[in-house]
Design a binder for these strands. Sequence first.
DNA 1: AAACAATATACCGCTTGCGGTATATGCCTT
DNA 2: AAGGCATATACCGCAAGCGGTATATTGTTT
Lengths: 129, 129
Amino acid sequence: MFLPMDLVRIYECLCDSTRLRILALLGGGPLCVCHIQDILGESQVKISKHLAYLKTRGLVESSREGNWMMYSIAAKPSPELKANLACLQDCSREDPVFKRDSTKLTKLRTRLAKPACPCAIRTAAKRST
Amino acid sequence: MFLPMDLVRIYECLCDSTRLRILALLGGGPLCVCHIQDILGESQVKISKHLAYLKTRGLVESSREGNWMMYSIAAKPSPELKANLACLQDCSREDPVFKRDSTKLTKLRTRLAKPACPCAIRTAAKRST
DNA sequence: AAACAATATACCGCTTGCGGTATATGCCTT
DNA sequence: AAGGCATATACCGCAAGCGGTATATTGTTT
């Protein structure tokens, strides 16, 4: 009665569209919170809380980088997690929302020579005014 | 913002252990409610409600067979559903709970020459006393 | 038509999730 | 040390899920 729980925990993480989008993004490598926030166009709290949710369930890890928090897919995913993330990447390939997100991400990445934070950009913009 | 919904709907179905077990069982072919009920050892209401849940979201279909209701995986599953069910079957291969369920199922199947309902057996047992 | 068997639904209480506003924390710059 | 930026947490209200008891529904048997 108790071992499908690992799987259930995973699926609980997957049954929210914001979290799906986050995971799809992180599939492409680590990101800081404000990156995610910018790409998804959602509030800071919302993103932060979903990240916390994912973290407590072990799908995601975080590390501080100065002022920013970098989030990434768990370094040592369980076989089930691995399988399901692969499945997600596969399913999301066709979807307009996921595609838009990933386009936004690549744009962001090219716009920034080094993978700095968009916050840096926002700050720069403010200063130049 | 709206198309990952198909995926979300699927994952919502997968994030309960009872539903996972049901889906894993149905992966092996159609079953009537009392089969499922017997194998999982859960109450009638519980099983029935989870089946209804799965049905409204299109993961599962039902057809009446005399007194029984036969449930089966959707005949024309979306690619996402197909992928995720395959993933589930894969993940469940190792799990003790799923294994126990499927063993119970094969026992049931061999015990019954034809795939009749366990209810028939229960009834017969009652009558013979 | 009456009783029964298999399944579904109504209602209830409890818990969890979700998103929002307000506020706290931690690091960095000046 | 003071202010600012990025992020996290507390609290709240609302909606949804889950499992239970009681009851309804539908088909079958006698």
